[in-house]
C-alpha cells in the first residue's frame, strides 16, 4: 500500500511530516502503520535518490534514513542532505557496530536506532527530536520530574527539593545533556562543548566527570534513572516521556 503525501499548509496544529527512506518493503509498511497511528503524516521512499528528491520538493519535519540503501551509501546521503537541510535525521543501522553509529552521527545524523528496533524506542527518539529545543529566551526550567529540577536561568539544580552543589563542569554537563533530553550526545560533542576543540580525544576527563555527576545525583550507572551510557557512542539523558 502506498500513501500519497498530503499537501499540507503550514498550519500550527499540522501533524509532523515524517519521511521514511528505506528499501525494505516490510519496514516501510510497519513504520507507515505505526507512525500514522501516532498521528504523524508519513511519506515513503525506497531509494536515496527518491528520498532526497522528495525531501527537496516537499520537505519534511523529520527524516528516518536507512544506512544500507541499495543505490547510495548512507553516509554519503547524509553528507549531501546536510548541505542544504537541517531537518532532524534518525538513521537506521543494521549492524550493532558502534563505529557506524558514530560515523553517522558525525556525518550529521541526530540520532540512531539499531535494526531490529522496537517501535516504542523509535517513537521516543522521534518525540525527542521534534520537541522544540529550549532557547535562551524560552523556558528556563528545562527539566523537572518532581525529583530532579534543572533551572537554567538561575543555574540551579535541586534534588528532592534540596539544592545540589555542582561544580561548573558538572553543571555544564548536566545542562547540556538535559537540553538534549532523549537524544544521544556523542563523546566528542561533549568534550568539545565542555573542554574545547583541543580536548575531543580526552575521553578520560568525561568518564571521571560523569562518574562524579552521577554520584552527586545518586544515579546508579548500572540502573540509571537519568543519565544512560551508550558504550562507545556517548551519553543520553532519559527523556521524561
Amino acid at each position: 500500500m502506498s500513501v500519497p503525501v498530503a499537501p499540507t499548509g503550514p498550519t500550527v496544529a499540522a501533524p509532523a511530516r515524517i519521511l521514511v527512506i528505506d528499501d525494505e518493503l516490510q519496514i516501510r509498511r510497519f513504520l507507515d502503520i505505526s507512525l500514522r497511528a501516532q498521528g504523524y503524516q508519513v511519506a515513503l521512499a525506497d531509494t536515496a535518490g527518491a528520498g532526497l528528491e522528495m525531501l527537496a520538493t516537499r520537505g519534511a519535519d523529520l527524516v528516518i534514513l536507512d544506512m544500507g540503501l541499495p543505490d547510495r551509501d548512507g553516509l554519503e546521503v547524509l553528507g549531501e542532505l546536510r548541505l542544504w537541510s537541517t531537518v532532524p535525521v534518525i538513521v537506521l543501522t543494521v549492524r550493532s557496530s558502534e563505529r557506524e553509529k558514530v560515523a553517522a552521527l558525525d556525518a550529521g545524523a541526530n540520532d540512531y536506532v539499531t535494526k531490529p528496533f522496537g517501535v516504542q524506542e523509535l517513537l521516543a527518539r522521534i518525540r525527542a527530536l521534534l520537541r522544540v529545543l529550549p532557547d535562551g529566551g524560552g523556558m528556563s526550567v528545562i527539566f523537572d520530574d518532581g525529583h530532579l529540577r534543572i533551572d537554567l536561568a538561575s543555574r540551579m539544580v535541586s534534588l528532592g527539593g534540596q539544592p545540589l552543589a555542582l561544580s561548573r563542569k558538572e553543571y555544564a554537563l548536566l545542562a547540556f545533556l538535559a537540553a538534549h533530553a532523549g537524544r544521544v550526545v556523542t563523546q566528542p560533542q561533549l568534550l568539545r562543548e565542555l573542554w574545547g576543540p583541543t580536548h575531543v580525544e580526552d575521553t578520560h576527563y568525561l568518564r571521571i566527570l560523569v562518574a562524579k555527576l552521577r554520584q552527586k545525583l545518586s544515579d546508579d550507572a548500572t540502573n540509571p534513572r537519568w543519565i544512560v551510557t551508550e558504550p562507545g557512542v556517548g551519553l543520553r539523558f532519559i527523556s521524561p516521556d
Binding site: 563505529r99 522496537g118 563523546q187 575521553t203 578520560h204 568525561l206 568518564r207 560523569v210 562518574a211 546508579d220 550507572a221 548500572t222 540502573n223 540509571p224 544512560v228 551510557t229 551508550e230 558504550p231 562507545g232
Partner: peptide, 20 residues
Amino acid sequence: RRDWIGVDELVGSAIARLRR
C-alpha cells in the same frame, strides 16, 4: 578500539539491553 569507560556503565548498558 579502546576508550575509557566506567565498569558500572558497561554493566548498566548490558543489563538494560537484557531487560528488554
